[in-house]
Structures are given as structure tokens and as C-alpha cells.
Amino acid sequence: MQQIINFIIRNKTFLLFLLLFSISIFFTIQSHSYHKSKFINSANFLTGGVYNSVNNISEYFSLKSQNQILAEENNRLKSLLYNSSIKTDTSFVDSTKFNGLYRFTPANIIKNSYSLNNNILTLNKGKNDSIKEDFGVISSKGIIGIIDKTSANYATVISILNTTSQISAQLKNTNHYGSLKWNGNSPEFVQLVDIQKVAPVKVGDTIITSGISSIFPKGILVGTIQDFKLDDAENYYTLNVELFNDMTNLEHVHIIENVDKPEITNLLNE
């Protein structure tokens, strides 16, 4: 016993080093596995508060380009509205259909990141705005990611530019679907893998979300096909998809909640 205590006292620095090093390795491994509970994230009040107060100032610098993006979206929505063939009668509101299948919440990105292998963003909405894990995040131009952790006022988002992220997507023309991944090389391109060989793939075709995972509704824009090749077994295509979103310049986003998601997961688990 005496010897053990002596040993600990003699090597206390090395043992402390070993302890702290293994704690950090533990955190690192946790951060590399999808959706594991972790304690070190930027959704807490300290980091969230710092990012929020800095973002309050820095958002003024991108005001002009963000206004431009919002005006473009308004323009697109207006043209959809006035050209739609369905005539809505404003005197009659069907209250049974008033709550849609998807609930949208606007949010601001207060920390953007795109240069790492596992990029995680921070939003200024949290549990107080009924934001929960596994909600989808989109911008006016397309898909951004999935909510990971939430605190009272902040939430972190697993960006599509994250090597652990996996989102179901499909071709716009046909219903052949695959999963959207990122190889970590360029923030402008993501990869769509496991598309069946029989699918009619053409360069320039549009990729949309498939709605299979019940996180995103079907039809959210992702990008266009840049190039494609067969995988090693020659059964599936791997597509290189150029994103519509400029992931390096993000500000206003929308969080999507699928109201029926608990029902769907319940059904699948039975």
C-alpha cells in the first residue's frame, strides 16, 4: 500500500497528464459518433451568449446581401402565389386544416463553420421556442442540416458539411433515392451515394430531399448534379452534387418541425 501511494506521488504529473488526455480523447470519440450525448457544445449559455452578442453587431455587415436574398425569396414566393391555379377563398377558413403538417420557426445562425471535417453551427433558438433534437434546418435556397443539441435559448446544428451526417435525398424527375453524405473536401459539393444503377442520371439534374426520414418534407432543394460515377461494385451511382446554398454565407434560416413525426416513429417501432 505504501509503495502504491509512493508511486502515485512520484508520478503525479504523468498520471494527471494521462487522466486529462484520456478525458479529451473520450470527448473526441464522442463527438465523432452521431447524436451521442456530449457535454462540450456551443449551445450553452456562455458560448451561446458570447456568439449572440457578437452576431448582434456583425450581422449589420452582411445586411445588404441578406436583404438581397430575402427579396429574391419574396419574389419567388409572390410569383408562385399569383400564378397558382388554386383559388383560395378568404371568406372561408377551414379550421380543421389550419394547422399544417410542418411547423416553421425562423432563426439566425450565430456561428457558422465550414472548414473542418465535422462542422457544427449554432442557432439563436432553443428549448424555449420548442426546438427539439432532430428538427430540420433549411434556408431560402435549400437544405442546411439537422438540430443536434438544444439549451434554453440556443441550439447546435449538424451541418450537411459534416462527415457523420446522412440525409435521405432523391432525384427530382424520378423517385430513386439515396443518402446524402460529405467527403470533407469542398464546402460547395456534397455526395449522394447508393442511387440505383437503373436510375436515369444526367449532369445538371436537380436533387431534392425525399421525405423518407420524416425530418424534412419532400421537395426541399439540395443542388444540381455536377458529375457521377459507378461505385466499385458497379451497382450504385455516386453523384457529386453542387449545393444551391452558399454554406460560407448563411444568416437567416428556418427550422422545420414535422408534427406527425412521433406518430411515424411510433408506427415504425411497433
Partner: peptide, 18 residues
């Protein structure tokens, strides 16, 4: 914590300090 990177900076810093 600020960069959401798990524990990579902590591990590298501890190693360098040691």
C-alpha cells in the same frame, strides 16, 4: 466548447504542456 470540436484542442494542449 466554442468550436464544437469535442476534445481535440484539449488533447493537443495537454500533450504540448506535458
Amino acid at each position: 466548447m466554442f468550436l464544437d470540436s469535442g476534445g481535440i484542442h484539449a488533447a493537443a494542449s495537454v500533450l504540448v504542456a506535458y
